[in-house]
């Protein structure tokens, strides 16, 4: 199987390890991820004003490229924010042909001459894992189950809301948790999993982010979590980098992308998974479960 993916700017910078671990884990499962030949920033946040079509140009330009130049019906995203923005813009123009026409006209094309016609499906990589490959199939491929590892799946906002584009039940998502169970981990659950991490306030007002992550990390730790697992590069930044900066958190929790933990369970190499690029080093925890000691994975529990 061959999948075209839209990386997004952050996957090319501070989230390189997400991309590298996704490519490696998917390759292990027999799926090749190949990058779109051309793409631009998606715009990150879906514009919520009814008339601000200028801000829809970025996502629609990406979808137009997928449809018209690469002739694909589906594009896979890694980043939750890209997923959300591309999906919402796609929905907007599919439901409103007049707006699509305006956007196409601005891009100097129309639906018979290179313009976007609305045929692309925007899919998050987690959906590929759940719906196309299947968690059962993934479970069968696990070499070293993450036995006894207590992980807290954190979803944040952009995978779930608005419900029209969400990939799981908005109030009680299980997609990352189910994947973690397939990998053999123990899943810690808490309603805080769907609360915002503080998002872009990480630029303008870190105190808002600190307040958010103290609550999220505090709840996860009180339930016994040893690590957080997530899919969004901005959540990763806030929960990893900002957590490490937050002086009030005495015992920080390491943060993984789900693809990194897939790689660990598949026995892939530490360097490939970018486990050295975290602010809170997750390797001591992994060593505890025997990672990279072939044949000894799985914490001995009584």
């Amino acid at each position: 199987m061959d999948i075209k993916y839209y990386p997004g700017c952050t996957v090319k910078t501070s989230a390189r390890n997400y991309e590298a671990s996704a490519i490696a884990a998917l390759r292990y499962l027999g799926v090749e991820l190949s990058e779109l030949e051309q793409w631009n920033c998606c715009g990150v946040v879906h514009t919520l004003s009814t008339d601000d079509l200028m801000k829809q140009l970025a996502p629609i330009r990406v979808l137009k490229h997928v449809e018209q130049c690469e002739e694909r019906e589906e594009v896979v995203t890694l980043c939750d924010m890209c997923y959300n923005t591309l999906s919402q813009a796609n929905r907007l123009v599919k439901d409103d042909p007049a707006k699509l026409k305006t956007v196409n006209t601005f891009m100097e094309c129309d639906d018979s001459h290179g313009g976007y016609t609305g045929t692309v499906r925007v899919v998050h990589l987690l959906q590929v894992l759940r719906d196309t490959i299947g968690f059962q199939a993934i479970k069968k491929k696990v070499k070293y189950p993450l036995r006894g590892m207590k992980v807290f799946p954190y979803y944040g906002c952009m995978l779930l809301r608005p419900g029209e584009v969400g990939i799981d039940t908005p109030e009680d998502p299980t997609i990352i948790g189910d994947l973690m169970r397939a990998l053999g981990a123990e899943v810690i659950d808490d309603p805080v999993k769907i609360e915002c991490c503080g998002s872009h306030h990480t630029v303008g007002d870190r105190s808002i982010v600190f307040e958010r992550i103290e609550r999220i990390i505090g709840r996860a730790r009180s339930k016994g979590a040893e690590a957080v697992v997530l899919s969004c590069p901005l959540c990763r930044f806030n929960l990893d980098t900002r957590q490490q900066e937050d002086r009030t958190i005495e015992l920080p929790l390491p943060v993984f992308y789900y693809t990194q933990l897939m790689g660990v369970a598949f026995g892939l190499d530490e360097a490939v998974l970018g486990l050295n690029e975290h602010r809170i080093d997750p390797r001591p925890l992994l060593r505890e479960i025997g990672y990279q000691k072939k044949g000894e994975y799985g914490r001995i529990t009584t």
Partner: peptide, 27 residues
């Protein structure tokens, strides 16, 4: 609502692109 040209190195370096784009689009 914000002054982009007054932003400091500490605010800009190392911050994910998605955070900056979102911050600017909102402000």
């Amino acid at each position: 609502h914000i002054k982009i040209s007054h932003m400091t190195e500490a605010e800009l370096e190392g911050v994910p692109q998605i955070a900056l784009v979102a911050h600017f689009r909102k402000n």
